[in-house]
Computed example of a mutant assay.
Amino acid sequence: MDIIITGASGFVGQNLALYLSNRGISISNLSLRSSDWYSNIENKACAIVHLAGKAHDTSNTSSDEEYFRVNRDLTIKLYDLFLQSDIKDFFYFSSVKAVADSVSSGLMEDAIPNPLTPYGKSKIEAEKYLLSKPLPPGKRLFIIRPCMIHGPKNKGNLNLLYKVVEKGIPWPLASFHNERSFLSVDNLSFLIQAMLEKSDLASGIYNFADDETLSTNQLVSLVSETLGKKPKLWHISEKFIRYIVMLGDFIPLPLNSERLKKLTESYVVSNAKIKDALAIQHLPLSAKEGLTKTILSFKK
Protein backbone atom coordinates (compact mmCIF):
# COMPACT_ATOMS: atom_id res chain seq x y z
CA MET A 1 0.00 0.00 0.00
CA ASP A 2 1.32 3.44 -0.99
CA ILE A 3 0.06 6.68 0.51
CA ILE A 4 0.93 10.35 0.08
CA ILE A 5 1.29 12.56 3.16
CA THR A 6 1.34 16.35 3.04
CA GLY A 7 2.89 18.03 6.06
CA ALA A 8 5.02 14.94 6.67
CA SER A 9 7.78 17.04 8.26
CA GLY A 10 5.48 18.24 11.04
CA PHE A 11 4.86 16.63 14.41
CA VAL A 12 1.84 14.54 13.35
CA GLY A 13 3.31 13.80 9.93
CA GLN A 14 6.57 12.43 11.32
CA ASN A 15 4.80 10.18 13.82
CA LEU A 16 2.19 8.96 11.35
CA ALA A 17 4.76 8.24 8.62
CA LEU A 18 6.92 6.25 11.06
CA TYR A 19 3.93 4.32 12.42
CA LEU A 20 2.65 3.36 8.96
CA SER A 21 6.05 2.58 7.45
CA ASN A 22 6.78 0.24 10.37
CA ARG A 23 3.66 -1.65 9.32
CA GLY A 24 4.65 -2.10 5.70
CA ILE A 25 2.96 0.95 4.19
CA SER A 26 5.02 2.95 1.69
CA ILE A 27 5.05 6.71 2.33
CA SER A 28 5.57 9.52 -0.18
CA ASN A 29 6.06 13.01 1.20
CA LEU A 30 4.42 15.84 -0.72
CA SER A 31 5.52 19.36 0.16
CA LEU A 32 3.00 22.02 -0.81
CA ARG A 33 5.61 24.74 -0.36
CA SER A 34 7.25 24.19 -3.74
CA SER A 35 5.77 26.06 -6.69
CA ASP A 36 5.32 22.89 -8.74
CA TRP A 37 3.98 20.58 -6.01
CA TYR A 38 0.95 19.65 -8.12
CA SER A 39 3.21 17.88 -10.63
CA ASN A 40 4.65 15.59 -7.95
CA ILE A 41 1.48 13.66 -7.11
CA GLU A 42 1.91 9.93 -7.67
CA ASN A 43 -1.17 8.39 -9.29
CA LYS A 44 -0.10 4.94 -8.10
CA ALA A 45 -0.84 5.90 -4.47
CA CYS A 46 -4.04 4.62 -2.90
CA ALA A 47 -4.59 7.56 -0.55
CA ILE A 48 -3.68 11.15 0.23
CA VAL A 49 -3.45 12.15 3.89
CA HIS A 50 -3.58 15.93 3.92
CA LEU A 51 -2.00 17.15 7.15
CA ALA A 52 -0.37 20.37 5.93
CA GLY A 53 -2.00 23.50 7.24
CA LYS A 54 -1.67 26.71 9.18
CA ALA A 55 -1.95 25.87 12.88
CA HIS A 56 -3.87 27.97 15.38
CA ASP A 57 -1.62 30.82 16.54
CA THR A 58 -2.30 31.60 20.21
CA SER A 59 -0.18 34.77 20.03
CA ASN A 60 -2.61 36.15 17.42
CA THR A 61 0.14 37.43 15.11
CA SER A 62 -0.98 35.63 11.94
CA SER A 63 -3.17 37.40 9.41
CA ASP A 64 -6.64 36.09 8.61
CA GLU A 65 -5.68 35.83 4.95
CA GLU A 66 -2.87 33.40 5.72
CA TYR A 67 -5.24 30.92 7.38
CA PHE A 68 -7.57 30.94 4.39
CA ARG A 69 -4.76 30.79 1.84
CA VAL A 70 -3.21 27.71 3.46
CA ASN A 71 -6.09 25.86 5.11
CA ARG A 72 -8.78 26.49 2.52
CA ASP A 73 -7.25 27.42 -0.82
CA LEU A 74 -4.41 24.88 -0.87
CA THR A 75 -6.80 22.17 0.26
CA ILE A 76 -9.17 23.01 -2.59
CA LYS A 77 -6.37 22.78 -5.17
CA LEU A 78 -5.15 19.46 -3.77
CA TYR A 79 -8.66 17.99 -3.61
CA ASP A 80 -9.44 18.99 -7.20
CA LEU A 81 -6.30 17.14 -8.32
CA PHE A 82 -7.36 14.13 -6.24
CA LEU A 83 -10.75 14.04 -7.98
CA GLN A 84 -9.00 13.93 -11.36
CA SER A 85 -6.51 11.25 -10.28
CA ASP A 86 -6.69 7.48 -9.85
CA ILE A 87 -6.15 7.80 -6.09
CA LYS A 88 -8.95 6.21 -4.09
CA ASP A 89 -8.99 7.90 -0.66
CA PHE A 90 -8.59 11.49 0.56
CA PHE A 91 -8.09 12.22 4.26
CA TYR A 92 -8.50 15.87 5.18
CA PHE A 93 -7.31 16.80 8.65
CA SER A 94 -9.64 19.52 9.79
CA SER A 95 -10.19 20.27 13.49
CA VAL A 96 -12.86 20.22 16.17
CA LYS A 97 -12.27 23.98 16.20
CA ALA A 98 -13.96 24.09 12.80
CA VAL A 99 -17.17 23.37 14.71
CA ALA A 100 -16.94 25.02 18.12
CA ASP A 101 -14.44 26.91 20.22
CA SER A 102 -15.71 25.42 23.47
CA VAL A 103 -17.96 22.49 24.40
CA SER A 104 -18.85 20.97 27.76
CA SER A 105 -20.64 17.81 26.63
CA GLY A 106 -19.41 15.35 24.04
CA LEU A 107 -19.04 17.06 20.66
CA MET A 108 -20.62 14.98 17.89
CA GLU A 109 -20.02 15.07 14.14
CA ASP A 110 -23.52 16.40 13.42
CA ALA A 111 -23.09 19.53 15.54
CA ILE A 112 -23.88 22.75 13.65
CA PRO A 113 -20.54 24.49 12.99
CA ASN A 114 -20.01 27.89 14.56
CA PRO A 115 -16.26 28.61 14.51
CA LEU A 116 -15.17 31.94 15.97
CA THR A 117 -11.54 32.19 14.86
CA PRO A 118 -9.95 32.59 11.41
CA TYR A 119 -8.36 29.18 11.97
CA GLY A 120 -11.69 27.47 12.58
CA LYS A 121 -13.44 29.40 9.82
CA SER A 122 -10.76 28.50 7.26
CA LYS A 123 -11.07 24.82 8.20
CA ILE A 124 -14.86 24.72 7.92
CA GLU A 125 -14.79 26.51 4.57
CA ALA A 126 -12.42 23.85 3.27
CA GLU A 127 -14.74 21.16 4.63
CA LYS A 128 -17.74 22.70 2.90
CA TYR A 129 -15.98 22.77 -0.44
CA LEU A 130 -14.90 19.14 -0.19
CA LEU A 131 -18.40 18.02 0.73
CA SER A 132 -19.93 20.02 -2.11
CA LYS A 133 -18.09 18.11 -4.84
CA PRO A 134 -19.61 14.85 -6.11
CA LEU A 135 -17.36 11.86 -5.42
CA PRO A 136 -16.58 9.73 -8.48
CA PRO A 137 -17.34 6.00 -8.09
CA GLY A 138 -14.70 4.14 -6.09
CA LYS A 139 -13.41 7.22 -4.27
CA ARG A 140 -13.79 8.06 -0.57
CA LEU A 141 -13.51 11.31 1.39
CA PHE A 142 -12.72 11.29 5.10
CA ILE A 143 -12.84 14.56 7.02
CA ILE A 144 -10.96 14.06 10.29
CA ARG A 145 -11.65 16.39 13.21
CA PRO A 146 -9.05 15.72 15.90
CA CYS A 147 -8.96 17.35 19.31
CA MET A 148 -5.64 18.35 20.92
CA ILE A 149 -2.97 15.96 19.62
CA HIS A 150 0.09 15.08 21.68
CA GLY A 151 3.03 12.71 21.56
CA PRO A 152 6.83 12.53 21.44
CA LYS A 153 8.40 15.62 19.78
CA ASN A 154 5.28 17.65 20.56
CA LYS A 155 6.16 21.28 21.35
CA GLY A 156 2.71 22.62 22.25
CA ASN A 157 0.96 23.56 25.47
CA LEU A 158 1.60 20.15 27.03
CA ASN A 159 5.34 20.75 26.78
CA LEU A 160 4.90 24.17 28.41
CA LEU A 161 2.92 22.60 31.23
CA TYR A 162 5.64 20.00 31.69
CA LYS A 163 8.29 22.72 32.05
CA VAL A 164 6.19 24.53 34.67
CA VAL A 165 5.93 21.38 36.80
CA GLU A 166 9.56 20.38 36.19
CA LYS A 167 10.77 23.72 37.55
CA GLY A 168 8.66 23.29 40.66
CA ILE A 169 6.41 26.22 39.78
CA PRO A 170 2.95 25.85 41.38
CA TRP A 171 -0.01 25.56 39.01
CA PRO A 172 -1.88 28.84 39.66
CA LEU A 173 -5.08 27.97 37.77
CA ALA A 174 -6.36 25.17 40.02
CA SER A 175 -9.57 27.10 40.76
CA PHE A 176 -10.67 26.54 37.17
CA HIS A 177 -12.49 23.21 36.82
CA ASN A 178 -12.78 21.58 33.39
CA GLU A 179 -12.85 18.34 31.43
CA ARG A 180 -10.78 17.94 28.28
CA SER A 181 -10.39 15.41 25.52
CA PHE A 182 -6.90 14.60 24.28
CA LEU A 183 -5.61 12.53 21.38
CA SER A 184 -2.44 10.47 21.49
CA VAL A 185 -0.63 10.52 18.16
CA ASP A 186 -0.37 6.73 18.51
CA ASN A 187 -4.16 6.44 18.68
CA LEU A 188 -4.44 8.80 15.73
CA SER A 189 -2.05 6.67 13.68
CA PHE A 190 -3.88 3.48 14.67
CA LEU A 191 -7.19 4.94 13.46
CA ILE A 192 -5.74 6.09 10.12
CA GLN A 193 -4.28 2.64 9.45
CA ALA A 194 -7.60 0.98 10.37
CA MET A 195 -9.49 3.32 8.06
CA LEU A 196 -7.09 2.67 5.19
CA GLU A 197 -7.51 -1.07 5.58
CA LYS A 198 -11.31 -1.12 5.95
CA SER A 199 -12.44 -1.10 2.33
CA ASP A 200 -16.13 -0.75 3.15
CA LEU A 201 -15.77 2.23 5.51
CA ALA A 202 -18.18 4.97 4.47
CA SER A 203 -17.02 8.45 3.52
CA GLY A 204 -17.84 11.15 6.04
CA ILE A 205 -16.78 13.26 8.99
CA TYR A 206 -15.10 11.53 11.93
CA ASN A 207 -14.02 12.97 15.27
CA PHE A 208 -10.74 11.69 16.71
CA ALA A 209 -10.19 11.67 20.49
CA ASP A 210 -8.94 9.35 23.22
CA ASP A 211 -11.56 7.33 25.09
CA GLU A 212 -11.36 9.26 28.38
CA THR A 213 -11.18 12.90 29.45
CA LEU A 214 -8.95 14.57 32.04
CA SER A 215 -9.15 17.90 33.83
CA THR A 216 -6.17 20.24 33.67
CA ASN A 217 -5.66 19.69 37.40
CA GLN A 218 -5.53 15.92 36.79
CA LEU A 219 -3.02 16.55 34.01
CA VAL A 220 -0.81 18.64 36.29
CA SER A 221 -0.97 15.86 38.87
CA LEU A 222 -0.09 13.26 36.22
CA VAL A 223 2.94 15.26 35.10
CA SER A 224 4.02 15.69 38.72
CA GLU A 225 3.66 11.99 39.51
CA THR A 226 5.55 11.00 36.36
CA LEU A 227 8.38 13.28 37.47
CA GLY A 228 8.24 11.91 41.02
CA LYS A 229 7.05 15.24 42.40
CA LYS A 230 4.18 16.21 44.66
CA PRO A 231 1.53 18.19 42.72
CA LYS A 232 1.49 21.91 43.54
CA LEU A 233 -2.02 23.20 42.85
CA TRP A 234 -2.76 26.81 43.83
CA HIS A 235 -6.43 27.75 44.11
CA ILE A 236 -6.17 31.47 43.34
CA SER A 237 -9.36 33.46 42.81
CA GLU A 238 -10.64 33.18 39.24
CA LYS A 239 -11.57 36.88 39.32
CA PHE A 240 -8.00 37.87 40.15
CA ILE A 241 -6.56 35.61 37.43
CA ARG A 242 -8.89 37.09 34.82
CA TYR A 243 -7.79 40.60 35.80
CA ILE A 244 -4.11 39.68 35.27
CA VAL A 245 -4.99 38.04 31.97
CA MET A 246 -6.61 41.26 30.72
CA LEU A 247 -3.25 42.97 31.17
CA GLY A 248 -1.60 40.16 29.20
CA ASP A 249 -3.76 41.02 26.20
CA PHE A 250 -2.01 44.39 25.95
CA ILE A 251 1.48 43.83 27.32
CA PRO A 252 3.78 40.78 26.87
CA LEU A 253 2.92 38.54 29.83
CA PRO A 254 3.10 34.70 29.92
CA LEU A 255 -0.69 34.55 30.12
CA ASN A 256 -3.28 36.22 27.90
CA SER A 257 -6.97 35.54 27.27
CA GLU A 258 -6.32 33.07 24.48
CA ARG A 259 -3.84 31.00 26.49
CA LEU A 260 -6.07 31.05 29.58
CA LYS A 261 -8.95 29.74 27.50
CA LYS A 262 -6.87 26.92 26.04
CA LEU A 263 -5.56 25.95 29.49
CA THR A 264 -8.82 26.08 31.45
CA GLU A 265 -11.78 25.57 29.12
CA SER A 266 -13.76 22.35 28.95
CA TYR A 267 -13.62 20.61 25.59
CA VAL A 268 -15.11 17.12 25.43
CA VAL A 269 -15.16 15.27 22.11
CA SER A 270 -17.01 12.04 21.35
CA ASN A 271 -15.15 9.36 19.38
CA ALA A 272 -18.15 7.00 19.28
CA LYS A 273 -18.78 7.30 15.53
CA ILE A 274 -15.32 6.22 14.37
CA LYS A 275 -15.18 3.36 16.91
CA ASP A 276 -18.59 2.13 15.81
CA ALA A 277 -17.59 2.36 12.15
CA LEU A 278 -14.42 0.34 12.78
CA ALA A 279 -16.13 -2.05 15.22
CA ILE A 280 -13.66 -1.38 18.02
CA GLN A 281 -14.45 -0.89 21.72
CA HIS A 282 -11.27 0.77 22.94
CA LEU A 283 -8.33 2.57 21.40
CA PRO A 284 -4.88 1.01 22.01
CA LEU A 285 -3.81 3.61 24.59
CA SER A 286 -5.92 5.06 27.37
CA ALA A 287 -5.76 8.83 27.79
CA LYS A 288 -3.47 8.48 30.82
CA GLU A 289 -1.19 5.95 29.10
CA GLY A 290 -0.80 8.17 26.06
CA LEU A 291 -0.15 11.28 28.12
CA THR A 292 2.37 9.46 30.31
CA LYS A 293 4.24 8.34 27.19
CA THR A 294 4.37 11.94 25.98
CA ILE A 295 5.50 13.25 29.37
CA LEU A 296 8.28 10.65 29.58
CA SER A 297 9.52 11.74 26.13
CA PHE A 298 10.00 15.26 27.50
CA LYS A 299 12.27 13.83 30.22
CA LYS A 300 14.50 12.29 27.58
Rank of each mutant, 00 (worst) to 15 (best):
F250W: 10
P113S: 10
N29G: 05
S62Y: 05
S104N: 15
D36T: 14
L107E: 05
E125F: 02
V245P: 03
A287T: 15
I192T: 01
K198M: 05
N159S: 12
S132M: 11
L81E: 07
A47G: 11
S9G: 10
D101V: 05
T292D: 10
F93T: 11
L227K: 06
I5V: 10
E42F: 06
K230I: 14
V245T: 15
E42H: 13
L296A: 11
Y79Q: 08
R72F: 03
F82W: 13
F176N: 11
A202N: 15
S85G: 15
P137Y: 03
S35W: 06
D211S: 02
A52E: 02
V269H: 11
K198T: 11
E166S: 13
S266M: 02
Y92L: 09
G151T: 12
Y38I: 14
A209C: 05
L173K: 10
F90A: 10
N114V: 13
G13I: 00
V164Q: 14
I244S: 09
V70H: 00
C147F: 05
A126D: 08
E65V: 00
V220W: 03
A17Q: 06
N43H: 13
L214A: 12
I48W: 02
F142Q: 13
N256L: 01
S26C: 02
N207T: 05
T61M: 10
L83N: 03
N256C: 07
E125I: 01
K121H: 08
N29A: 15
K288Y: 08
K88V: 02
T294Y: 08
W171M: 04
G120A: 00
H177I: 10
V269K: 00
K262R: 15
A47K: 09
S94L: 09
Y129N: 11
S21T: 07
S31I: 06
E179W: 00
H50R: 12
A202H: 14
E66G: 01
G168K: 09
T292P: 08
Q281C: 03
D110N: 15
V220F: 13
D211Q: 03
L278F: 12
L32H: 00
S31W: 02
A277N: 06
L219D: 03
S85L: 13
L173T: 08
E258R: 12
Q193W: 12
F90G: 03
A202K: 15
S224D: 10
R180E: 11
K163L: 09
F68K: 03
V268M: 06
A202E: 15
N187L: 07
A174S: 13
L283T: 10
T58V: 14
D276P: 02
K167S: 14
R140M: 02
I25D: 04
D101S: 12
K123H: 11
P172E: 04
P118V: 01
R72D: 00
L222R: 04
R180H: 08
